[in-house]
């Protein structure tokens, strides 16, 4: 909350940028933005507050400022599971890092083909790609499980990783296709005249211009893979291999006793890398401005 409030600068801080007449609307805009920010921040604050409440008062002590503090949730939560919590963090980091690499490589290749190359069957394949996004995952669970079992991949990270290297997520391909299609065709023509083949054009011309799309893909991949629950649940059986969401869920039993305080503490711990990555990654969203200057 303080974060947004201190970031509500009166227009006076920036006198050169705006003539005096424009101060009022800008001030109002900041007030509205910050007010909205508080609404958006509330869940995080609540989570932090819950993480330092004793398990039994998480739901009965309604105040954001705990009546009783229990910082022990963090220490206990860190060590209560069969492996210390850093193991789960490391597992998740490995999976997330490789997934991002895989998604960026494989999806950008496919997206370039769909967006900039003309080849037989392009429309059909594109429709097929979209089609793969449309079938509810629940009915694929059993066939996929059988398939990965036949491949001998159960209880390994392969079922979680290999699909990312094979561009199986149409969302990212489609996203990049839309960004690439909005770049002018003259870029490719110029590159071709300079003697560039498709790959060189892709690597030297298109990729740098799509940085915001890549940053978006990396951020979304991080978040979705980091939070992914059902696939790791299915394919991992060795608790040492568990990812963070599986570990966090082990603090609770929805039909009985749960270690709420510990669960909230570790939920917050597991949220930190995501927030960190988002803040780091969004720099590259801004970088797009510089690159568009090329045009």
């Amino acid at each position: 909350m303080t974060l947004t409030e201190t970031r509500t600068p009166p227009a006076a801080i920036d006198p050169a940028a705006a003539p005096p007449v424009r101060r009022r609307p800008r001030f109002i805009r900041y007030v509205l933005l910050s007010g909205g920010g508080i609404v958006m921040m509330y869940p995080l604050l609540w989570m932090i507050s819950s993480s330092v409440k004793p398990s039994n008062s998480v739901f009965t002590d309604e105040s954001l400022w705990p009546a009783v503090f229990d910082f022990g949730n963090y220490a206990r939560g860190w060590t209560a599971l069969s492996a210390p919590f850093e193991v789960y963090l490391a597992n998740s980091l490995i999976i997330v890092t490789l997934s991002i690499v895989g998604n960026l490589l494989s999806c950008s290749l496919a997206a370039y083909a769909f967006a900039r190359l003309r080849f037989a069957g392009r429309k059909l394949f594109f429709a097929l790609m979209l089609g793969t996004m449309m079938l509810p995952g629940h009915v694929l669970v059993v066939p996929q499980y059988v398939m990965f079992d036949k491949l001998g991949w159960l209880n390994t990270y392969y079922p979680l990783l290999v699909p990312h290297f094979l561009a199986t997520n149409g969302f990212y391909i489609f996203l990049m296709v839309q960004f690439m299609r909005s770049l002018p065709q003259e870029l490719d023509d110029a590159a071709r005249i300079d003697g560039c083949g498709p790959f060189r054009t892709f690597w030297k011309v298109i990729m740098p211009l799509c940085l915001p799309a890549f940053a978006t893909t990396a951020i979304f991949t991080f978040i979705s893979v980091w939070n992914e629950f059902f696939s790791p649940l299915l394919y991992l059986t060795d608790p040492e291999l568990y990812t963070v969401p599986l570990a966090v869920r082990q603090f609770m039993d929805s039909e009985g006793q749960s270690m709420w305080g510990e669960m909230f503490a570790m939920s917050f711990v597991s949220l930190a890398p995501v927030i960190g990555f988002f803040i780091a990654g969004q720099k590259y969203l801004v970088k797009g401005i510089a690159t568009t200057g090329l045009r």
């Binding site: 499980y145 649940l233 059986t237 608790p239 869920r249 039993d253 929805s254």
Partner: peptide, 15 residues
């Protein structure tokens, strides 16, 4: 051994 919260538990068991 492996244990989970009851609702994901039963899904995984069925699968």
């Amino acid at each position: 051994t492996e244990y989970q919260d009851s609702s994901p538990y039963k899904d995984k068991l069925a699968a």
